[in-house]
Nucleic acid binder design. Sequence first.
DNA 1: AGCAAAATCACCCGAAAGTATGAAGACAAA
DNA 2: TTTGTCTTCATACTTTCGGGTGATTTTGCT
Lengths: 139, 139
Amino acid sequence: MALVLFLLQWLEAHFIVFNYRLDFFIGSIAIVFTVLGIWLALKLVKPKVETRIIEKEIYIESTPPTAINQTEIANLGISKRELDVLQLMATGLSNEEIAEQLFISLNTVKTHSSNIFLKLEVKRRTQAVEKAKRLNIIN
Amino acid sequence: MALVLFLLQWLEAHFIVFNYRLDFFIGSIAIVFTVLGIWLALKLVKPKVETRIIEKEIYIESTPPTAINQTEIANLGISKRELDVLQLMATGLSNEEIAEQLFISLNTVKTHSSNIFLKLEVKRRTQAVEKAKRLNIIN
DNA sequence: AGCAAAATCACCCGAAAGTATGAAGACAAA
DNA sequence: TTTGTCTTCATACTTTCGGGTGATTTTGCT
């Protein structure tokens, strides 16, 4: 602002020189301040950012020698007992049968399977088994 | 530009009125064109494009080229439609969702799955999927 | 055309699965 | 010791599955 005021003073002081060329003078003012405006805008306004999201498809071959993916299990936060249930689930056993196998109650199996579904982000046991096999959580 | 020139003409035509207030006049010009500059900058500057690449993992069924066992399907007497249901069942869909996929009613899906269980000699859908995959009826 | 298998759908009912919530003991880590 | 996770179990409720039965329509084949 101080700079601008000084500039105005200077321009006025030299006005007589340019008096016979008022058009040119005003045009200069206009151009100078247009440039100033542009500069201000560019300098002070946050740059527009247009985010363009590109999904890059990465094909992952599930390891042929079907090694159980311990990392994935840890990532998903699946506990030992939940893994037990998941394993039996994959063989097609009912919750009741799983309970008998593991010597725990039906309710406990239900709790475990609910937690499994949450962690695997699925809705049904069939999906859980499908995803678990795909991720090599079970074999 | 034409607009700007016209504006200048108009301003000059009214110059006498503002003559005794040159400071004010110049200041006005300055402000107007500063604003014009700002507007131009905001309007014309291309937004920065920020490209964000998101890696989307796609898992590939790396199961060896196990050919689907048509003989087994025939032996078990599984029909085309039943195979359709079985296939969708293996992806973890509910009967309701299968019905939507195949444009048939829920009851029909139930009938098909019941028949599948009979022919595969299993009690549950999870077992059906497990056995079907084992027999290479589906992939 | 006529028959048989396949496909479609409906209704009922019980079983199984799944959700929500709460709670208590075990055990390891902070 | 406290904190947090895991495991266990329960109760109540909703949803989905599966079995049984019967019926109509389509379709393929002779």
